[in-house]
Computed example of a mutant assay.
Amino acid sequence: LSNLDAKLRVQMRTEIKELHQRLKTTTIYVTHDQIEAMTMADKIVVMRDGRIEQVGAPLELFDRPANLFVAGFIGSPAMNLLKGTVSKGEKPVVDIAGTAFPMPANSAGEDGQAVVYGVRPEHLEIHPDGVEAKISVVEPTGSETLVFVRFGEGEMVALFRERHDFKPG
C-alpha cells in the first residue's frame, strides 16, 4: 500500500480489514509499515534479522514492548528512548541529564545502574514544574502537533492534540 496516496491508503486498509472480517479466514499480511500492522492486525509478529522479537495483539505490543527494538518500532512517532541512571534514594528515580524521572512501579534496578527510559510522545505534557527543553522543530499536522526538542544530550519528540503556539528556540 506504500505506493498509494495517503487517502487511498487509508481506504484500502479499511477495505482489506472488512474483507478479512467478512471471509473469516486466516490472513497473513506482510508489511514494514507499522501503522498498517497496528490498524489491520489481530496479532502482530515483529521480526528483525529473521528472528521473532515479539508476538501479540497490537495494543499489547504498544503498551508492553518486550525489548528496545519493539519499543522503538511500534508507535508513530516512535517512543523516546533516553539513557539514564537509576538513583535509589528515598524515592527511586532515573536520572537523565540531571533531571529525576519517576521509576515505573514494576521496575527494578540497582543504584547507579545504566538504563534506557522509554516515554511515548503522546504521554509528554507541558507542566510548570517540568523539564526544560529547547524546541528545534515544530510540525503541525492539523489534528496534532509534533514538537521535537533537545533535552540534555539527546532529542525527544512530543505529540500534542491541543493547540499551542510553539516556536523553535
Rank of each mutant, 00 (worst) to 15 (best):
L4F: 09
L4R: 15
K7P: 13
L8T: 14
Q11F: 07
E15S: 10
L19D: 03
L23G: 07
K24F: 07
T26D: 01
I28R: 15
I28E: 04
I35C: 05
M38E: 07
M38Q: 10
T39L: 13
T39A: 14
A41R: 09
A41F: 13
D42L: 13
D42T: 12
D42N: 15
D42F: 14
I44F: 14
V46G: 02
M47V: 06
R51V: 10
Q54G: 03
V55R: 12
L61V: 13
F62V: 07
N67I: 10
L68D: 11
A78Q: 08
A78F: 07
N80E: 05
L82I: 08
G84Q: 03
T85Q: 14
V86S: 05
V86T: 04
G89S: 14
E90Q: 08
E90G: 15
P92V: 06
V93I: 10
I96S: 02
A97N: 06
A97K: 03
G98Q: 13
G98T: 07
A100L: 10
A100Y: 03
A100T: 05
M103Q: 06
M103T: 03
M103P: 06
A105V: 14
S107A: 15
D111L: 12
V115R: 02
Y117A: 01
G118L: 02
R120F: 06
E122D: 09
E122P: 03
I126A: 08
G130L: 08
A133R: 03
K134H: 09
V138W: 00
G142P: 13
G142F: 10
V147G: 00
E153I: 03
E153P: 04
V157T: 13
V157S: 04
E162Q: 12
H164K: 11
D165E: 14
F166T: 02
P168D: 13
P168K: 05
